[in-house]
Each structure stands twice: as C-alpha cells, then as structure tokens.
Amino acid sequence: MPKLRGLSRLLIVQARLFLREPLAVFFTLLMAPMLLVLMGFIFGNEPDPLLSGRGALDVGLPGYAAMVIGIVGLVASAVETSTRRETGVLRRFRASPLRPLTYIMADVTVYFGMTMLGVGLLFLLGTVAYGVRFGGNPGTVFVGVFLSTGAMLSLGYLLAGLAPNARVATLVGNVTLYPMLVLSGAVVPMQVMPEGVQSVARFIPLTHAVRLLRGLWTGDALSAHPVELAVLAGVMLAGTALAAWTFRWE
C-alpha cells in the first residue's frame, strides 16, 4: 500500500511527541483525575437522596470524561494542527510522498488513543479508589466514548482548517470550549441550570456526549439514547467531511 507508507512510523512518532508536550499530558491525562480527587475530597461519594440515591462522583465522573473528550477534540487537536501549519511543519511533510490522508489518519488515531487513555485512567481511578458505581456495559460505554471523541475531533480539525493562524484557532477553541463545559453539564449538573440555559444546551454537541455517557454509565442501553447517538454521529460525519475539505498543508 504505497498510499499508507509511513503510517506506522508516523503513529509512533506522533504519540511520542504528544506525550512530550507537558500541557497536552496535563489536560488529557491528569486534569480529570485531579478534578475527581478534588470533588471526592469536598463531597465524598456517599449516596445522596437529591441525586436519586447516587453519590456526587457517580454522577460527576462521566461528565469529567466528556470534559477530556472536549479538551482534546476541540482545542488540543486544533491548536497543534494549526501551529504545525503556521510554523511550516506540514509544509515539510508535504515535500515528501506522504499522502494527506495518511497524515490525518495517524494524527486522529493518536488523539483517539490519548483520549481513551485519559478517560480510561479516570474510570480506573474512580472505580478503584473512590468506589464509583459502574452499572453499565463496558462495550456500550466504549461506543459512547468513541462516538463522542469522533464528533469533537472532527470539529477540532474543522476549526484548524478554518482558522487563519494558530492564535485564532487557540482563541476560538477555548472560547467555544469553556461555555460548552459549563452549559453541557459536564462539570456543573444540568439540574441546577435555569430553564433557558437547558434549552440552549440542546444545541451544544458536548451536551449530547455528557447525556449519552451518563446514561450508558448507569446501565442504559444504546437504544435508550437515539437523539444523542444521532446528533453525535451526524456531527462526526459532517465535521469529518468538512474538515477533509478544508484541510490545507499550508
């Protein structure tokens, strides 16, 4: 397969480069577990009648997973890709026979892998150290994480393609992400939001990721979340098509 030549080497190098970036490691692998520890310290995980008999961490943990997915998908990928374009890294790749699709496949795979690693670490810490109750099916949770990551990553790549430079990509990524984190219920429970905010939240892709992951975490079947699945799959397909269309080496 001459078109995929270099893929395996590129996967290895991209993964190493990701793990050498302190900010990327912090936001992907460390921040959510730290948030979990902090919340565990403040609230504990005792069953609470206000949360229909579940603990604060039982409810919070799937939301923190969505937060990791949002940070990597929307900001980390967009910032790195646009920085590489701006500084001429992509230009250097372009001078070789490497195909754009091979580059994107390797890049996206590494972001997927790192997100899975971050979410996996979070789940492990929650269930082992804090006794967070997991009532779901690992397979369906994986599908939910995969779909959510795909949707957010395609948006990040689209942003990288549209932003004229790395500064704009960083700014737009962060300005979009932080309200999303609050409004989607990823870090603040949706129940405390006013009605108006809750109706706006429906139009935020991350909201659907949060709802889906929360539902799957407590044992919902995939078929219980047709709206969330449809929205995330739609965003992923449309975002991927648009991102491929707007991708530029320089």
Binding site: P2, R5, G6, S8, R9, L10, V13, R16, L17, R20, E21, R84, T87, G88, V89, R91, R92, A95, S96, P97, L98
Partner: peptide
Amino acid sequence: FQSAALPPRIRVEEALSLFASFYR
C-alpha cells in the same frame, strides 16, 4: 525550504527515520 519546520520536541534520529519511512 526557506521556511519550514519540524515539531520542536522531535529528536534528530526520529525525524530522519520518520521521513525515510515515507519513501519507496
């Protein structure tokens, strides 16, 4: 190129083995 770059944290040997892998 007059202006091109590599990721700042890539090692010299990684860059060379990576680019070598792109060619026939």
